[in-house]
């Protein structure tokens, strides 16, 4: 029906525009609000390098060393985790799949645990801990990802591969528990802090590494809209539509795993976003056609993550851990959307 198509097309363009505007507004809000009040015109001046006078040095430090990298990281991390969740959910035809389910983020945690706990306190200092965590997380996630790709060659069934992934995740968790059991108190403390998730540790230098990699991953997600659509019908239908299912599955595992590992390495394991945002995106864009859903997921992910970041810096004294906020924000949104649709039009 041509008439319906234009209406739904218009509706979807409107939704995408609204999400884009929301992301920009929330990014600005995150730049404007924080534990220290800074006039907005000074913020603009500092960001564009027009600041004058030594009395603004503190403000400049706050803006450039803290707010700008943290806010931009939150935006990109939200997109990356949400897209990783979408890719996992479609690849495994499982609405409960998310970046954390395949053990990739648990692998990151294991890597960090090895660095912080098993090193016996050899890693000290805030900078040392952060750098070691990033390396540990990437190594840990990389090992798990290689293991998964190895199993993907042997295990033909996608559902079985999902189960193998979950089991690997549990194995990694139990190793983490053992490391915790034998670790020093200081080690456990810094590991617990890392596990709460935060964008506070970002610096401009780290953003310089994180942002380009993240943007590459996000852009690559748009290359898979066609095979992802076919894979929603299941492996057999996808093959029958000309998709090389095994190769696509491995590429998506690598992409979703890479995005998750990257974010986890720099920000700690951030849960819930990857699981819930793809559902929010599908429900508001009202289709699972990936040419729409990929964009809607990326924008919803960044908007929700920025909202979480905004709330986390609200208290004057300190920063609330991100993982304490994501479900508080995400859960009401998804429940509101589900309850307000008279029919859940997917997931029978």
């Amino acid at each position: 029906m041509p008439v319906d198509r234009t209406i739904s097309g218009k509706y979807r363009v409107a939704v995408m525009t609204a999400l884009g505007v929301l992301t920009v507004v929330l990014w600005l809000a995150c730049m404007l609000f924080g534990s220290v009040d800074i006039p907005s015109n000074r913020i603009v001046a500092i960001v564009f390098g027009l600041s004058e006078g030594a009395d603004e040095d503190t403000w400049r430090t706050i803006i450039l060393m803290s707010r700008l990298p943290a806010t931009t990281t939150a935006m990109l991390a939200g997109m990356a985790l949400a897209l990783a969740g979408l890719q996992m959910q479609t690849t495994f035809s499982n609405p409960l799949a998310g970046p954390s389910i395949l053990g990739v983020s648990t692998g990151s945690s294991l890597g960090v645990a090895v660095v912080l706990l098993a090193s016996g306190g050899a890693v000290t200092g805030q900078f040392g801990i952060a750098t070691a965590s990033i390396l540990g997380a990437i190594l840990g996630a990389g090992c798990i990802l290689l293991l998964l790709l190895g199993f993907s060659r042997i295990v033909k069934s996608t559902a079985m591969l999902l189960i193998v992934g979950i089991i690997i995740g549990y194995l990694a968790s139990s190793l983490i528990s053992l490391l915790n059991f034998f670790a020093t108190q200081e080690g456990v403390h810094s590991f617990v802090i890392w596990g709460m998730g935060s964008f506070g540790g970002m610096t401009l230098e780290r953003l310089g590494i994180f942002a380009p990699l993240c943007i590459i991953g996000i852009a690559a997600s748009f290359l898979y809209v066609k095979p992802l659509d076919a894979m929603l019908l299941g492996d057999n239908y996808a093959r029958n539509l000309g998709v090389n299912v095994r190769r696509t599955r491995n590429a998506l595992l690598l992409l979703a795993g890479g995005l998750t590992a990257l974010v986890t390495a720099f920000c700690g394991p951030i849960g819930f976003i990857g699981l819930v945002v793809p559902h929010i995106a599908r429900l508001i864009i009202r289709t699972s056609s990936h040419i729409w859903v990929v964009g809607a997921t990326a924008l919803s992910g960044s908007a929700i993550m920025l909202l979480c970041q905004l709330i986390s810096v609200m208290p004057q004294s300190s920063i609330i851990p991100i993982n304490a906020i994501t479900p508080l924000i995400g859960a009401p949104i998804i429940i509101y959307i589900i309850v307000n649709r008279n029919k859940i039009f997917y997931l029978r």
Partner: peptide, 29 residues
Amino acid sequence: LARLLTIVTGHSDGAGAFTVEELVRLGRQ
């Protein structure tokens, strides 16, 4: 093969959020 034969092997749960037109369009992949 995708241009030689097409299969209909029953419903797949993942297709639920496609509109009918979007589902039929997949046939053009």
